[in-house]
Write a protein that binds this DNA or RNA. Structure first.
Lengths: 198, 198
DNA sequence: CGATTGTTTCAAAATCTTTTGAAAGTTATG
DNA sequence: CATAACTTTCAAAAGATTTTGAAACAATCG
C-alpha cells in the first residue's frame, strides 16, 4: 500500500460526506449525474489521489459505475488520471482550479445550447417571412389575420432572440473573466453595493 | 366559438412548432419539464389566450398532462389564467415579460439551491473544527496526519464556500437588475468589448 | 508466455420521471 | 337541484436514465 497510512480510506469523514452530498446535489441540479459530483468532491478533499477501488468503497458504488463516471469526469477535464510511483493501478485527482473547471463546462455545454437556440430563433423568423409571402395569395379576410399574427410572432420571437444574445454575452463575459481570474466579475458585483444607500 | 376565426387553432405554424421545440429543450436543460416550455411557448406566440383543450390538441398531449403542466406554470407565475368574455372554460395566457419571468424563477429556485449549499459548506467547516478538537486525544503519529488533513479540507471547502458566495452575488445582481430592466447588465457586458484592442 | 491484477464495456435490472386516461370533483346554468 | 361542461387528480403504464455485475479486455510481472 503506497498511501501514507490510513486515517482515511476506510470511510468518509463527516465533512467529506456532507460536502460530497451537497456537491452531488448541486451538480445534479446543473444537469449532471449526482455521482459525478460525489466522486469529484471526494477527490477534491483527498490529500492524495485515490484509486477507482477506493472510490468504489468510500461511496458504495459498483466498479462499473465508478469507471464510467471517472471517464466522464475526465472528458470534462474535471478529474485527472495520475501516476503514483510504484503502483500498478491508476489513481485519480480532482482538478482543484474551480474557476477553470466551471468555465470549461460552461464553454462546452451552455454555449452550445445557447447557440442552437439562437439559430433556431433566427430560422423561425425566416420562416415567418416566407409565411408573409405566401399570405399574399390568400383571401383578403384571412390575409389580414395572418399578417397580424406574423407581426406579433416576429416581435415576440425577436424578444427571445435578444434575450438569448444577452445570455450569450453574459456567458462570454464569465468565460473570458474565468481565463484570467474572477476579479473583474467580483469587482462589478461588489461595485453595485455602495452606490445605493437605503 | 369566441376566438376570432382560426388560421390557427388547427395546427401550429412552422415558426410556432420550431419555437416551442427549442424553448422546450432549453427549459428542459434548465431542469424543468419539456412540456412546460412547449406550452409556454405556444401561449407566448398566440395572439389570444388558449384553452386547455386547444393546447391539448396543438401539442398532442393528454388532458391530464395539460392540466398539471398549466398548474405548474401558473405556480411559477409564468402563465396566467384569463377570463374570456362569455366563455365557460378557462383560458390561459403567457407572461410576456421575459425578464420578470426569469427573475422570478431564479429567485425561488437557484437562490434556494445556493443558500442550501452555502449552509452545508459552513456546517462542514464547523464539523472540521470539532474534528480538530477530537484529534487532540489521538496518538501523536495519527494526530499529525489528521490535523494536516483537516487543514487541507478547510482550505478547499473554504474555496467552495467563496465560490458559492460569488455565485449568490451574481444571482442577486441579476435579480435586482431584473426588477428594473436589463440595462445595467447589458452596459457592463458591452463595456467590456472596446477596452481590449487585439 | 501464463497468471494476476486492474479497467472497461454493455446488456439486463433497478430506479426515477413523465404521461395517460378514466373517475372524482367543481362550477355554472336552466 | 340536476345536468352539462370543464378541470383536476391519481394510480397505473410508458419512457428515460442510472446502476449493476459479470464477461471481455489490457497491462504488468514472474
Amino acid at each position: 500500500m503506497s498511501q501514507v497510512s490510513g486515517v482515511h480510506k476506510q470511510a468518509l469523514w463527516p465533512s467529506e460526506a456532507a460536502v460530497s452530498d451537497v456537491v452531488g446535489r448541486l451538480i445534479e441540479f446543473w444537469g449532471f449525474k449526482r455521482n459525478m459530483g460525489r466522486i469529484w468532491a471526494v477527490l477534491y478533499l483527498s490529500p492524495d489521489p485515490l484509486s477507482a477501488e477506493d472510490l468504489r468503497r468510500l461511496l458504495s458504488l459498483s466498479s462499473g459505475a465508478v469507471s464510467m463516471t471517472l471517464g466522464e469526469l475526465a472528458r470534462w477535464g474535471v478529474v485527472r488520471r495520475v501516476w503514483v510511483q510504484g503502483e500498478r493501478k491508476d489513481f485519480f485527482a480532482a482538478e482543484v482550479q474551480l474557476w477553470r473547471m466551471i468555465s470549461r463546462v460552461f464553454n462546452e455545454r451552455e454555449k452550445m445550447e445557447i447557440d442552437t437556440a439562437i439559430e433556431a430563433f433566427e430560422e423561425a423568423l425566416a420562416s415567418l417571412d416566407r409565411m408573409k409571402t405566401q399570405a399574399a395569395s390568400a383571401p383578403a379576410k384571412e390575409r389580414q389575420e395572418i399578417l397580424a399574427r406574423v407581426e406579433l410572432q416576429k416581435e415576440r420571437i425577436g424578444k427571445l432572440l435578444e434575450l438569448s444574445k444577452l445570455g450569450k454575452k453574459l456567458l462570454d463575459a464569465l468565460l473570458s473573466t474565468a481565463k484570467v481570474d474572477a476579479e473583474p466579475l467580483a469587482r462589478f458585483l461588489l461595485g453595485r453595493q455602495h452606490s445605493h444607500p437605503s
